[in-house]
Amino acid sequence: MQDHQPLLDSFPSFTRMIQVPYVGNSEGLAILWDDAVFELDDISTIEQEIHAMVKLFQMDMVMKLGATNAVVIFTKSSCCISHSIETLIRSFGANPTIYELDTHPNGKQMEKALIELGCQPSVPAIFIGKELVGGANEIMSLNVRGKLKQLLIRANAIWV
């Protein structure tokens, strides 16, 4: 059995990889992930399946972080557009949770997940009311149309 454990160890939600018996004399692999067991049938595609699961884990991690507060912004410390969006949202009285990808230990994985979720560029990425709203263009468009404040109110990020 090829050792894929180092790849799995880089993602805390993966518990471990184990060998499991199949019908007949063959053996397969299974990955334990958040109390779920994923069987990997074809030994030749194990690495591809692991990478697919890693992508799912990364996107799940970002979506869970995006749901931790009424407003969550994924940014980079050097991004002036991200700073402007944060300032705009704070001007309504909201207190967003900020994740700076360039300083966060899992920042690179989170950035890849944001790209997979459709954020181009990856920052800023803004969640309001546990939903991915998008990036700076979407936030500015909502603001120009007078809809950003209402979205923040519906998300309980601000009160009037």
Rank of each mutant, 00 (worst) to 15 (best):
E131I: 03
E131P: 01
I98H: 03
I31C: 09
N69T: 05
P124M: 10
Q109W: 10
G135N: 09
G93D: 05
E111Y: 02
G28Q: 09
L8N: 02
L101N: 07
M1F: 13
F14R: 05
G66E: 07
Q2H: 12
I85C: 01
A157W: 06
P124Y: 10
V133Q: 10
W33N: 08
A136I: 05
I126E: 04
S13P: 02
N69A: 15
I153V: 15
V133P: 05
E49I: 04
F74Y: 09
A36W: 06
L65H: 11
L56E: 13
G146P: 09
R16P: 02
N156Q: 12
R154Y: 10
A94M: 07
E27Y: 14
C79S: 15
D42I: 06
I158N: 01
D102A: 05
I18G: 02
Q120D: 07
G129T: 09
I98S: 01
A36M: 11
I81K: 10
N95Y: 06
I85S: 05
F57R: 13
S141F: 04
H4L: 15
M59Y: 04
I158F: 03
V37E: 15
V123H: 01
M1N: 10
L8F: 05
S78V: 08
M17E: 14
E138P: 02
Q120E: 07
A52S: 14
L56Q: 15
F127T: 01
S122Q: 04
V20N: 00
G134F: 04
V71C: 00
N143P: 02
L7N: 04
A67T: 02
C79D: 15
V62Y: 07
L88A: 05
I46W: 01
S122C: 14
S77N: 10
S122V: 00
K112P: 02
